[in-house]
């Protein structure tokens, strides 16, 4: 193969990736950004300007919703990490080889059904006349029906359940790569269980923890159906706001601005998280 042929081969190999990035990621984002800096001044008449962004900051309902979404998403991420870490540790370090595949499969099950079906599953379980409430009455723990639905805790539970796999996979991958003798050395040199966990296992798993957290946070902040279906009267999610702008109010310009703001806001949160944990994107997400 001469030089020109090599170049051609490279271009052909690279083309699908390049087109994918360009057509499905770069161009839509540019489109959304351009849309977001347009302002409607009359019927069918538009002007460029930052009005949509100014509107966002002037209206407390909007930025409150964004803040609320961010705080809830961070909380969901932390809960997912706390529950997911022991599971991942068990899969990577304690379970036998054959059990590992089965356990992974169990974590995958929530993703086999659509968001909608999954949420209805929770509704059936948690509603006032639902299975959990009836069971609690049956065994006599509570005297009357209990409503578990329509509050923030339910939203958190539903989201944690959905995103668990995305936390466990990177954690298992990093922990799997950890030599068992590091843990034994930690004990051998006099460390207690807590010390070994805190000074050896967690620092070693840090890249996996961070990359899991980033994925989980992004998925949560961008989720739509779960918070809407399980949430109560006061629960608001920023994606709902974007949907409202686009679909119900036909206000594509402000919807696009909200979309851009969500992207910027989640990116900043991730950046702060990386700075606080002393990790970089290349040492976490790119690694696992």
């Amino acid at each position: 193969m001469n030089h020109a042929q090599k170049r051609l081969a490279f271009l052909l190999l690279f083309a699908p990736f390049f087109l994918w990035i360009l057509l499905l990621i770069v161009l839509p984002h540019i489109g959304v950004f351009i849309l977001s800096v347009k302002e409607k001044v009359g019927m069918g008449v538009y002007e460029y300007g930052l009005g949509n962004y100014i509107e966002f900051f002037n209206e407390p309902v909007y930025w409150n919703t964004l803040l609320r979404t961010a705080v809830m998403s961070i909380f969901v991420t932390i809960v997912t990490l706390i529950i997911g870490f022991p599971i991942a540790y068990y899969i990577a370090k304690i379970a036998r080889q054959r059990a590992k595949a089965g356990l992974f499969l169990l974590c995958l099950i929530p993703l086999w059904v659509s968001d909608l079906v999954r949420s209805f599953g929770w509704i059936v379980l948690l509603r006032e006349t639902g299975i959990v409430s009836s069971f609690l009455q049956y065994i006599g723990i509570v005297s009357g029906p209990v409503e578990f639905l329509y509050n923030d805790a339910t939203v958190v539970v539903g989201l944690v359940y959905t995103v668990m796999l995305f936390m466990i996979v990177p954690l298992v991958t990093t922990l799997d790569g950890m030599d068992d003798s590091l843990i034994e050395a930690g004990f051998n040199l006099g460390g207690s269980r807590l010390t070994v966990l805190r000074r050896i296992i967690i620092p070693y798993a840090m890249p996996g923890i961070i990359s899991g957290c980033i994925v989980v946070f992004m998925l949560t902040a961008g989720s739509y159906l779960t918070p809407i279906l399980l949430g109560g009267k006061n629960s608001q999610w920023f994606t709902e706001q974007i949907y409202e702008q686009f679909i119900t109010r036909f206000n594509w310009e402000s919807g696009a601005a909200f979309g851009v703001l969500l992207l910027i806001f989640t990116s900043i949160t991730v950046w702060i998280g990386l700075r606080l944990s002393g990790q970089t994107l290349s040492s976490t997400v790119a690694k696992t």
Binding site: M43, V61, N64, T65, K233, N234, Q236, Q241, E244, Q245, T248, R249, F250, N251
Partner: peptide, 20 residues
């Protein structure tokens, strides 16, 4: 008429955001 959907949308947002 044009504009009403926007006004109604804001009203609905306010109701949703108010803390009951």
């Amino acid at each position: 008429p044009p504009g009403v959907e926007d006004m109604e949308g804001k009203a609905l947002e306010k109701i949703k955001a108010a803390s009951g």
